[in-house]
Design a protein around this nucleic acid. Structure first.
Lengths: 160, 160
DNA sequence: TTATTGTGGATATCGTAGGTCCATTTTAAT
DNA sequence: ATTAAAATGGACCTACGATATCCACAATAA
């Protein structure tokens, strides 16, 4: 269970977009050179980010990418969900077994109608874990990383 | 990014071991029938759990598996780490790039000696997320699921 | 001693992460 | 209008791990 390299690339790319004073957009050449990834592969990732409204892209001479909204409105969760997809962290593959019946809660009739099935208690724990993780990742933004990087630069500068 | 089916199987198997009054051990036949998984595949998983000291196994007639320690001392994190491995949720694949230098904190000399390298700020966020997730999963045990299942059974019984 | 049960190795299949290449489209600059 | 620069999307490739099966072997209790 690991985040993909693509997620790593996406996060670093967005940080690069966020930290540049943008007179112009930033092309895939610069991004790929900065991150040390091939242009072709990074293109795919940037394309996904564009389709999901995280970045804007403009083709043509002096084209490139820029953040589609302020860096403090781009959360880690946003990025991860675009790249990794939105499937649940855990799915109970056991829903027909005898045991599952024991471990499933029925809920109210209204609940069952709403969600169509009852929930495995193992899945309940795991989904709770996922919600916690999401909450944490929602609170971290591209901007928050930039802020910390700047702080660190200042600190290093002061020492000299 | 998803937990594997094996993790699902392992958790359900452990719960089955935990809920049985154990005059005897429980064989792979019963487990695989309960979970709806093949004996051969579930064997592999149980083997892993045994190698990590989560269950005990005894071969021979009337052999089988039992929990190696009380169910309240087997956490979700224990099980997940056995099955999924202990690699980090996130690894920065970017440690040589120019950008990474900007985003890495130096730390004290002692820190650098201890961990061998400085840490990327993106990785720092992600590792923080992982620690949160681990904390949550450390607080949930096989027993906690059993407790909730029993509570539910009582509730259902009361209704009648 | 034998039937039963777990162990571990070899092997198979399949999907996906990671990556490349190229034709096409879009845009800005000239 | 033309052209060069840049992003886009499709086709394709490879390697690896998740999932799974089968079998020979070891260990144990009756």
């Amino acid at each position: 269970m690991q985040f993909s390299k693509s997620t790593d690339y996406a996060l670093h790319a967005l940080i690069h977009l966020g930290q540049s004073e943008h007179p112009n957009n930033i092309g895939i050449k610069e991004l790929s050179a900065t991150l040390g990834v091939s242009e072709s592969y990074l293109s795919k990732i940037m394309s996904k980010l564009r389709q999901d409204g995280i970045v804007r892209a403009v083709p043509g001479v002096n084209g490139g990418y820029e953040l589609a909204r302020p860096a403090e409105q781009i959360t880690f969760l946003d990025v991860i969900q675009v790249i990794e997809g939105r499937q649940q962290l855990f799915e109970c593959s056991n829903s027909n077994s005898r045991q599952h019946l024991l471990l499933a809660e029925e809920g109210t009739v209204r609940d069952q109608k709403r969600q169509g099935k009852c929930e495995c208690l193992v899945a309940k724990v795991m989904n709770g874990a996922e919600q916690h993780l999401h909450q944490y990742l929602r609170e971290r933004t591209i901007q928050s990383v930039l802020d910390e990087a700047f702080k660190r630069c200042d600190y290093e500068a002061d020492k000299k």
